[in-house]
Each structure stands twice: as structure tokens, then as C-alpha cells.
Design a protein around this nucleic acid. Sequence first.
DNA 1: CTCGATATGTCAGAAAGCTTGACAAACACG
DNA 2: CGTGTTTGTCAAGCTTTCTGACATATCGAG
Lengths: 201, 201
Amino acid sequence: MSAAPTPYRLAARRLLRDSLFQAAREELRKRPWAQITMGEIARAAGVSRQTLYNELGSREEFAQAFVIGEGERFIEAVEAAVRANVSDPHAALAAALELFLSTAREDPFVRILLNDDGTGGMLPFVTTRGEGLVEWASARIAAVMLENWPRVAREDAELLADALVRLSISYVALTRESAQRTADAVARLLGPYVDRVLAGG
Amino acid sequence: MSAAPTPYRLAARRLLRDSLFQAAREELRKRPWAQITMGEIARAAGVSRQTLYNELGSREEFAQAFVIGEGERFIEAVEAAVRANVSDPHAALAAALELFLSTAREDPFVRILLNDDGTGGMLPFVTTRGEGLVEWASARIAAVMLENWPRVAREDAELLADALVRLSISYVALTRESAQRTADAVARLLGPYVDRVLAGG
DNA sequence: CTCGATATGTCAGAAAGCTTGACAAACACG
DNA sequence: CGTGTTTGTCAAGCTTTCTGACATATCGAG
């Protein structure tokens, strides 16, 4: 059926997607999402409109994939924070969340997201239309948990990861306290559950 | 006729060439040039043999292009050294040469070149078959000279650059003294000529 | 509300690039 | 000297991208 694509093919594919996302990123610096045309993105990437549709499906799918792509920048740091605190799960939780919150707030793209006045921005793609993003991020988080704490049941890890991702998004969107205090608070909140699942049930 | 290629097309082209060069680089770590097949390079890059030939022409042309590609790593540092010494051309000359010699000697690929026992290595492609390399490098050097010292005549810059490139290659291939002393010596040797052409005649 | 303009999503056909299998010529080795 | 490998090239087949066109949906102006 689908034979394994050669290394070069894979790289070319990634290059294409990256070019399109890069183009979108640059357009987003100039005007909000609603005012950016699929055709403009394609043209800015130096590619035909059809190619964009072939690769990303639709405007909706493009936006979701784009948001997930932006998330890559954060998830790696988060995963590293977890791995650096394998011996102390509570600390890992707090560190990862704190790292995420503090770096996200300084990120140019996140700032654009937060500046959304509700008319034509990309905010829906991390909230109401954010299924893809949440699924993707929580799968990554659950994976890193299972990798580092093998005694945790898959179901438990997935629930925890899902909740964490949702809380993280919420706290980025609407900050009450410092990243530090927020992270500690969430760590206290979820600590008991963590202890329970770590004990194996 | 040849319409301007779009950004993505250019990037894809570069990706292809880079993949092929990368593959060659890795093969060269295992065995000498003469024992490496065009087919092996293509396969290692995940591309068909035909594509390699379409892109690079022939084994000979591939080797020349490859050597020039490796040269990119050095020429940038050299150009930077020149730009950092615009006010003192003698110092620029010495600094650039010294930088080139000392970094080149530590470079993995250059070491492979120097280990050539004469049977089947790539050494010819920087010496007897090095027209492409010398032309390319001296054009780059001449360009950076003309850019920084506009009073110099094109012809004079080209002669100087050509000689410098040839001397550089020779000194890398066959070192007598430290990079420092060699660079100073060459700077003394060519200093008078530099003064003359800088004076505009 | 309707009209006109623009954007989305899709399609078929042309063009470009990559792959495959084959081949003659050159070369290398035993 | 012959056998096997490599080089360089070709044609045919696929895949991907481009182009122009189209129906449909959406938005703004009058």
C-alpha cells in the first residue's frame, strides 16, 4: 500500500509545510487571521493555492495544524522539564507548568493570540476549535509520563495530561498570579491524584 | 525563458543538494572517495541515481561542487574577519588567513583530505582539478574586498584574491609554521602590493 | 434584501521532478 | 583477456505541483 517514503521525500514534505506555516506566521504579524487569505499564504510561501489545499486540507485544518506546529516550541521544553525531575513527580509537574507559562507569555505568537478582540482572530483554534491541539498536546504529555513513570496506568496518565493541558491553556489565556504561584497551586491541586496513580491504582 | 523559481522550489532544490552532500560526507567517513559509488551516495540520500546525475551532472562535477560546498564553512568566517578589519587592510589580510588556516586544520573534512595517500582520495579536487574551487573562492574574496575597499580596481582585487586562495590552499596542504607566523609572513609578502592598489593605482 | 465582489473548495489537464529498468562504454580485477 | 562493476544516458511511468476554471459560500455596499 503506502510504501515507506524515502528520507528526501519526507524532508521535502516537511519543508513544504514549514514554508506554508512560516508564510502564515509572517502574514499574522501584519493583520489578523480573518483578513488573511489562503491564496495569500500560498503565494507568500511561493506555492500554488492547490498545493496548500492538497497538503493541509482546508482553512480550518490549516489553522489547527498551524497552532499545533506553534505548540511544538513549548512541548519540547516541557518534556525536558519532566525528564529533569523524574525522581520527584510533584516537582516535575510544577516545573513543567511554570516553564510553560513563563515562556508562553513571552512568545510572539501567543501574544497575538491573546490580543484577539474576538473578531477574526485565531483564539478559537486553541479553545472551542482546539480539539486537535488538546488531543495532540495531551498525547505528548501522557507519553512522556508513561515513559518516565511506568507504573502509572495509561488511563490515569491520559486523564491527568488532558486536565493539565486544558488548565495550561486556560492559565495562559487568563492569568491571575505569577507563573510560579500558579504552577505551585496546580501542583498542590493535582498532587493527591498524582500520589494515588503513582502508587499503582 | 527561465522564469524566476519560487522560494519553495529553490529551497527544495537546496534540500536535495544538501541531502546528497550530506550522504557523501557520511560515506567519506567510512572509506576514501575512490571506493564510493555514485549509486551509494544516491541511496544514502534516499534518492535515485538518475536524480543525482540530473542535479550534479557527473562524478567529477559532483566532487567539485561538494568541495566548494565544504568551503562555504570557511569562507564565511574569512569574510567576517575582513569586515571586522576594514580600517586596517594589512590586519584584515593577516587575520583572515590566520583564521582560515587554524580552523581548516581542525576541520574533519580537511583532515580527510590531508590524509590522502595519493590513491583514490579527493585531494585532486582542491589542487589539479580545483579550478572550480579556486574560481569560486577567489570570486568571493575579491567581492568582499571590493565591497569594503571601493577604491581598489577590480582587476587588482581579483589578482590578489586568486593568489591568496592559492597560497591558502597550499599552506593548508603543507604547513611549515604556525598559522600565526604563516599569516604574518604572507601579510608582509603582499603588504606592498596591497598598499599600492589601495592607493588607487 | 439584493447585487457584486471576493474567498473557499474542487477538478481536470499540463508541466516538472523523481523512479525504474535498461543499455553501451569505460574501467578494474583476477 | 574476460568477467563484473561503474559511469553516464535514455525512455517510460508516477507523483507532485501548477494553471485555469468552476460552483458555492460569504461579505459589504447600496
